[in-house]
Amino acid sequence: MKPMNDNDFDLLLAESAKRRQSVEHINAQVMQTVRRDLHVKAVRKWTRLLGICLGLPLAVVVYVWVLWEVIAACPMQTPLRVTCIALPLITIAAILARNLKNYRLDV
């Protein structure tokens, strides 16, 4: 490769300065997208957490209340009533336990 004189070196530095501007422009554009993505991810994470903490218990309470009202209105013996409430509750508890076990806050 031919040796570099002062003029070549100055041109290279000028080219390098120009390259840095391009690189800075690229970095700024990409970081804008990355920050937006991170923001969306954070919002989604906390919305999910809120849904799990408040939404799930609320859904369970409403479901149990409706179930209780329906069973209370039906003429049946106490052991049968207890079984009718307990069975769906155990199923719900199992589903919830499985979902909560797999729940990850950072996803």
């Binding site: 690229i26 970095n27 990409v30 970081m31 990355v34 991170l38």
Partner: peptide
């Protein structure tokens, strides 16, 4: 995000 900026 700064970590990614450093990588970039």
């Amino acid at each position: 995000a700064r970590a990614f900026e450093t990588l970039m």
